[in-house]
C-alpha cells in the first residue's frame, strides 16, 4: 500500500522529502542495521564469556564491565538523540537513525549531504531541496560511510598482522593532514552559509557562540557532560533564533 503511494508520490521535483525518506524499504534496511549490531553484540558477549576464565576474568566481572559501559553511555547517547531529532526534518527518521545515530556523525553527514546537494546546484534544506536532491544526498552519505567501513574491513586484518607501523612512517603527516583537512572542510562549509541570507548569518553566529559558551563553561566548571550536549544545545538554540528571525 505504502510502497505504491511512494511510486505515485515520487516526482523528481517534489519537495515532500518525508514521502520518499519514509518509504518502507528504507525503514526495513535501517532496522536491519540495528538488528545486525544487536546480533554482533550478542556474539561478542558470548565470546567474551567463553574467554573469561582464560583471561582471569570472572563472569561477575564481565557483567560489571557490561553494566559500567552501559551506564557510562547513557549521557552521550541522549546527546546524540537530541541532535538526531533536530535533523529529522531534513532526512527523515530511517536515514537519521542509520547515518547520524549510528555509522556517521551529525557533522560529517550533514556536510556530505550539503556537498552532494551543491553538485546538483541545489541547497540542502532550501526551496530547491527536492526528493531527487535528497536521494542523491542520502546516496552520497551512505557511499562515504560505506568507504569508512570498507577501509576498516580491509585495514584491520592488515594492522593486526603488525602493519600498524604504517602509521609511524610519517608522524608529522599523520598529525598535520587530518587536522588541516578537518579545519579546511568545516571552515569552508561554515563560511559558505554566511552569505546565503542575513538569517543564515545570524543562525551561524548563534550556533558558534553557544558552542563556545558551552565549551568555556565545561572547562570552567569541570563539567564534561556539557561538552557532549554542546552540539545539541547549539543547534536547538540556533534554530529557535532562526525561527524568530525568519518570522519577524
Amino acid at each position: 500500500m505504502q510502497s505504491l503511494s511512494v511510486q505515485v508520490l515520487a516526482e523528481a521535483g517534489s519537495t515532500d522529502i518525508l514521502a520518499v525518506a519514509n518509504s518502507p524499504l528504507v525503514w526495513v534496511c535501517a532496522l536491519g542495521v540495528f538488528a545486525v549490531i544487536f546480533v554482533q553484540t550478542l556474539i561478542y558477549v558470548k565470546a567474551a564469556r567463553k574467554a573469561g576464565p582464560d583471561a582471569g576474568m570472572s563472569s561477575q566481572e564481565l557483567t560489571r564491565s557490561y553494566r559500567a559501559g552501559a551506564i557510562a553511555s547513557v549521557g552521550p547517547s541522549l546527546a546524540v538523540v537530541l541532535v538526531a531529532i533536530a535533523l529529522l526534518a531534513l532526512f527523515g527518521t530511517p536515514a537519521v537513525l542509520v547515518r547520524i545515530g549510528l555509522i556517521g556523525s551529525a557533522a560529517t553527514e550533514t556536510a556530505s549531504a550539503g556537498i552532494a546537494a551543491t553538485t546538483m546546484g541545489a541547497t540542502l534544506g532550501g526551496p530547491d531541496y527536492t526528493q531527487q536532491i535528497f536521494a542523491i544526498a542520502f546516496m552520497a552519505m551512505s557511499l562515504s560511510g560505506g568507504m569508512w567501513m570498507l577501509a576498516t574491513l580491509i585495514l584491520t586484518p592488515i594492522l593486526k598482522r603488525g602493519g600498524h607501523r604504517l602509521s609511524a612512517m610519517n608522524p608529522a603527516a599523520m598529525a598535520i593532514i587530518p587536522c588541516a583537512a578537518l579545519l579546511g572542510a568545516f571552515s569552508m562549509l561554515a563560511v559558505a552559509e554566511a552569505p546565503k541570507s542575513s538569517v543564515h548569518l545570524v543562525t551561524l553566529g548563534v550556533s558558534a557562540v553557544v558552542m563556545a559558551g558551552c565549551l568555556f563553561l565545561a572547562k570552567k566548571l569541570g563539567a564534561g557532560w556539557l561538552k557532549e550536549w554542546a552540539l545539541g544545545f547549539a543547534i536547538i538554540t540556533a534554530l529557535a533564533v532562526a525561527f524568530v528571525a525568519h518570522t519577524a
Partner: peptide, 14 residues
Amino acid sequence: VARLYILPAVMGAV
C-alpha cells in the same frame, strides 16, 4: 524553518 537553517545551525557549532 528547521530545514532551511539546519546547515548553519550545525556548521557554526561544529
